[in-house]
Amino acid sequence: MNLHGVMAIYRFEMSRTRRTLIQSIVAPVITTSLYFIVFGAAIGSRIQEVGGVSYGAFIVPGLIMLNLLTNSISNASFGIYFPKFVGTVYELLSAPISTFEVVLGYVGAAATKSIMLGFIILATAALFIDLQIAHPIIMLAFIVLTALSFSLLGFILGIWADNFEKLSVVPMLVITPLVFLGGSFYSTEMLPPFWQTVSLMNPVLYLVSGLRWSFYEIAEVNVWVSLGSVLMFLLICFSIVVWMFKTGYKLRS
């Protein structure tokens, strides 16, 4: 195994985060703080408890998930798209490194950044609300698996995209709406029965619900179904990446 190669990619990607610290870390923290101020303090104080939890605390898992998903995708997609865009991908394609090792480097770094961000948001939330985590191991499992699987999705997106517009279209037009409609800021029980059923088709609902259960033991769907869904998504994304490298899709002519 080319461990030096994996570490080279990983370090390179992590140093990119250090160079773009404001964009990578500071901006999401400020945005999250604004959510807490607006939804948690200003509007939340007028909303009754949801499932026995204050509204400010209720939205914490949703906010973490929102940041995990969007940042995992953008970190990983940009990580592989940029070498394609500037042409430095030649080095990656001519290096003695396997698909798995390349993915490990890029996705590992993207997931690490997202997980760090998840914990920073958790710490930020603790400044605004009285935080309780019922099942920290399950919470960690959800955060890690979500970061990994959506970083893989971002990696796929980065290989597929041949311009910057395509790169931003999925996070903006697919992920963000799914997160907002996936019960991040409300319980689906608040919806009419028809829309409750429709919500079950939203994959992000399972992630938010699972993560929320690890905090407060309240869930829209069974936690093991949620965990199984993330694992399945991880496997699907990894299979697509393997296929992309084997066929050289949009990488090797």
């Binding site: 190669g5 080279a8 390179f12 500037v86 430095t88 080095e91 290096a95 003695p96 490194i97």
Partner: peptide, 21 residues
């Protein structure tokens, strides 16, 4: 084709690592 915002030493060190050394 280069990584414009990387330093000279780091990009050379990256290449060495990528090639398994």
């Amino acid at each position: 084709t280069t990584d414009s915002f990387e330093s000279v030493y780091n990009t050379v060190a990256f290449s060495r690592g990528l090639f398994g050394r």
